[in-house]
Amino acid sequence: MEELLFCTDIQLHHLNKIAQDIASNIQPPCVVLFKGEMGSGKTTFIKELCKQLGVKETMSSPSFSIVNEYQSGSKEKIYHIDLYRLTSIEECLDIGIEEYLYSRNYCFIEWPQLIEPILPTVFFTVSIKKEQDHTRTLLFSKSS
């Protein structure tokens, strides 16, 4: 079952407010999928979300490294995963995706389409949609 938790326009000046709302809805263990086409702002939004969770390090895109690991303000682990470069579920399994998914930490995943069959029963989805006029809409939902 998918339940829409909220839907909002994104404007840069309140990006931190939206991230705050999402941060207050999730706690580890949790898997959050980030969907949206290239350039829609997935990485930018995850950076903001991590900031709200108290991450202090420089957060860069994991498109090349596949997985970045950060530490939240309350010392929990955050995995920032980007499956963009992978082409099959076997490759995902080879990098040990299950260990991240079921690690009991925060797991933020960009380009998650390949691993939909092996997701835990409960997970969240953040979808970022670009509208005609280049504004963006963000949908936050929970599947269980």
Binding site: M38, T44, S61, S63, F64
Partner: peptide
């Protein structure tokens, strides 16, 4: 250093 994407990623994604 880069605060988001690496320059190699900027090349690869544009290619895509």
């Amino acid at each position: 250093e880069t605060q988001d994407d690496a320059v190699g990623e900027a090349f690869d994604k544009a290619a895509k």
